[in-house]
Design a protein around this nucleic acid. Structure first.
Lengths: 209, 209, 209, 209
DNA sequence: TATGAATGAGAATTCATTCAT
DNA sequence: CATGAATGAATTCTCATTCAT
């Protein structure tokens, strides 16, 4: 009797197990997101994640082979979702300028909707967050002051200096990091291209989409 | 015997000890730089640093109170050096545009001359370098393609798309990272300001220093 | 639907269930034999056995109460079968020499026909097989060389030295292993009896069955 | 002052560290021998060994990379010592019969002096010791009974049947284990050679060293 | 009966830091 | 000052067994 019912149930819903697995996995990922964003990678124990997901420690290992693997899955899944959102948004446009614009907008919106993962991604809450903030701060302050002076002098576009400083530092450091591993361009060229891009922008003069 | 000689030397040259200390400290810092840049903080053991500096493990603690302290010293010293270089270069100028320009140039030059520490200062954790590269790559590839299309269409400035993609991603991520912890600006404003800065550049039209 | 058929079948053949049970149990035992012989007790997971028997993990516990219990069942069943074969063969004889001879022959034949289980029954833990082989090898090589020299000198019976070395080592180690836990015989006696048995054999001179 | 003394001490005894290391290692090995012999491999925790050796857990890993490695070291060192003892004893003789005799005697004596390690080697105190004893026992009992009958009938040499049964089983199982992995001889040949060796012994008739 | 997801106790291993020499 | 052996807290990962379905 019960056999028939259970058989029927099984036939009715052969995906029950799958759904269950997916749910548990989701719970683990959600718990991991929260804890990693708050305590950082090294401050988060597997046991904590499992407990936060309300499953046994061993259960974690049914879904992720390692803490690193969980982290990688988290990052990859988020990156995939971000790209899909951006692709979908850009698909409606052909003009490179429009595509760039909506791509950027979508990226920012996605980040806003996924703060936790972005915190993890950008190393906030990491062990040396504070130290790095401390040493970055003077660089940014300098740029900010110079930018503010430029704005006051009317030679720099009127943007909040605090914001502009971040944007500028981001461009400089990323370009440098990229260059460090690929020595086929001289640092002088990099320097000059960055300067041009930063001061003149991407848009060819006179063009407004 | 050797003790006597060393005592004599001590009398002769009271600074020998100081010099020796400084030298050992320098050796430890140099070894640490190399290892930290290569293996990251968690991948670098104190014992390794000591061995690479050719001193005993315990000796490390005569110069640095802690592994964290070493890291902090290293980062702070380097940051200070970088800032001093930039300040010195900028001191010769008053025009914000010139200052920005030479500041950037100095930054790049410093990075080129201090690769190891730059990675520690501005690079991301070596632990997930590979993963981050992996997930960044598609984003960058997309931006690169869009940028190339824009150049071809004559609406984007003629810069190497591979370079531009890095610069753009750097600006977007840094700005996002900065915004993540702040509640006082809307993401729409960030998005719009970033777009403006990126497309139009910092320079007010017509101005050329 | 299939439930109805199976119900019908059940009525038709009330032993079908029993046969099924026996078959599943047999499949589990066969899988266990193979895996245990290959990977040893600790190298064999219940889940692996179940998978190899093509049943669910939980099903294992419908047939064996414990991993230890399976092992014990396996070993006991095999030992029983071996003894029955030997008993049956010996039953035809009264002369102790004939009985010993056919007993031995049957033992060897059984081992040949049940390699997997023989390894489990009489082999040493798979975990350190390699190590034990490594350390045994020099002893055996020494004995082999000495034996070969004896054969060449005409003082040892003409048997393949490689074989004789194994036989001798087997006798020595087993006797030692047996003696280890007993306090009632002196090692000198053991030594002397082993020497006598080994050199003179079991048979009283002149007797040939 | 203290520097000179310590320097002097260092010069006087540059091996102090080495001796210390060797002593700690020895303590760990001794503790391991005892515990392994008593509780078996799986019943012995690293922490137990370290505690028994009166050192910290981590200290264990300064001397052995792994529990397996410790076991291997233990076995290898003992085997080496045994062989050296046997080689030394045999060196005094040329006659293969004398060499075999003193070799055997030395082996037994060595075993008596190293009971702990031999217990470990022969798997006594292993997890399934009891079970294997249980299933081996009937085989041995059968052989014992047959042997006793043979002795009573005057056709088997007068040796304690309990001893003889062990010796015979040892020869049979070792030879079988050896044969199992090398299929270049037929089991019938093995059977017949074993029978010959067992009944007639190694010594050519009439020869008495 | 059959299933396989869940469990969690248990053990191995690492490494920053200390301290006797 | 220099050394490197010793420490042990802290965490990861495994797998036999259970149980809801």
């Amino acid at each position: 009797m019960s056999t028939r019912i259970s058989t029927a149930a099984k036939l009715q819903d052969p995906n029950r197990q799958d759904r269950r697995r997916a749910e548990t996995r989701g719970r683990l990922l959600a718990a991991a997101k929260r804890l990693l964003a708050t305590n950082g990678f090294h401050g988060t124990k597997i046991a904590d994640i499992a407990a936060a997901a309300d499953v046994g420690t061993g259960t974690f290992y049914l879904y992720f082979s390692t803490k690193d693997a969980l982290f990688a899955d988290l990052v990859r899944e988020t990156a995939l979702a971000a790209r899909e959102a951006m692709d979908a948004a850009k698909a409606a446009h052909v003009d490179p300028r429009r595509r760039a614009r909506v791509g950027g907008e979508t990226f920012f919106r996605f980040a806003a909707e996924n703060r936790d993962v972005f915190k993890i991604l950008f190393g906030h809450s990491a062990q040396f967050d504070e130290l790095l903030r401390e040493v970055h701060q003077p660089f940014i302050a300098d740029i900010e002051a110079d930018f503010a002076a430029g704005v006051a002098a009317g030679v720099f576009r009127d943007l909040p200096p605090a914001f502009a400083a971040q944007a500028i530092v981001g461009m400089l450091t990323q370009v440098t990091s990229w260059w460090i591993d690929r020595q086929d361009v001289s640092i002088e060229e990099i320097s000059s291209m960055t300067h041009r891009l930063l001061t003149q922008g991407t848009a060819v003069q006179g063009e407004q989409p």
